[in-house]
């Protein structure tokens, strides 16, 4: 078990909060930035999981017991690569959306809205509950 120092804890909190805030935006570019920031947060967390910072990472610099845990670094490296790949994918997707739609907004579920409209229309016309449900399914 290792505990994190305060600076890192605050930094992590900031990264996660900022990331999630950006993810909740409409524009895909902001969401992309949010994912990047969240990814940084997660990777920093992985690094911190390996113990306190400042220990030598390379073989030969210190006694094995004094060295930093290489395992989280290996995991973080893999995760960084994955985040990088998905970031480029999202970039390409945002570009495609911009080409096709003229914007990169992430919209609501269209069909869901259609069904909700249908239901509202049915509710407005005076019918009793049961019929309403059967017709909503049509």
């Amino acid at each position: 078990m290792s505990t994190v120092n305060l600076t890192m804890a605050i930094l992590l909190g900031g990264l996660y909060a900022g990331g999630f805030y950006l993810i909740l935006q409409r524009s895909l570019m902001r969401i992309l930035l949010g994912i990047v920031i969240l990814g940084h947060g997660a990777n920093l967390m992985l690094q911190l999981a390996g113990g306190p910072p400042g220990r030598p990472p390379m073989v030969g610099d210190a006694a094995p017991a004094m060295m930093t845990d290489p395992f989280p670094q290996a995991m973080a490296l893999t995760a960084v690569v994955i985040t990088f790949a998905l970031t480029t994918f999202l970039l390409a997707l945002a570009y495609r959306a911009w080409l096709l739609l003229g914007h990169d907004e992430v919209r609501d579920d269209l069909e869901d809205r259609r069904i909700r409209r249908l239901e509202r229309r049915l509710a407005e016309s005076e019918e009793d509950e049961e019929e309403m449900e059967t017709e909503a399914t049509q």
Binding site: A85, T88, L91, A92, Y95, L99
Partner: peptide, 17 residues
């Protein structure tokens, strides 16, 4: 190959567009 593909799709393809 991945880097070159990125250059192609996110670089020159967009430039061509």
């Amino acid at each position: 190959g991945v880097v070159l593909d990125l250059l192609r799709t996110l670089g020159s393809a967009i430039e061509a567009d």
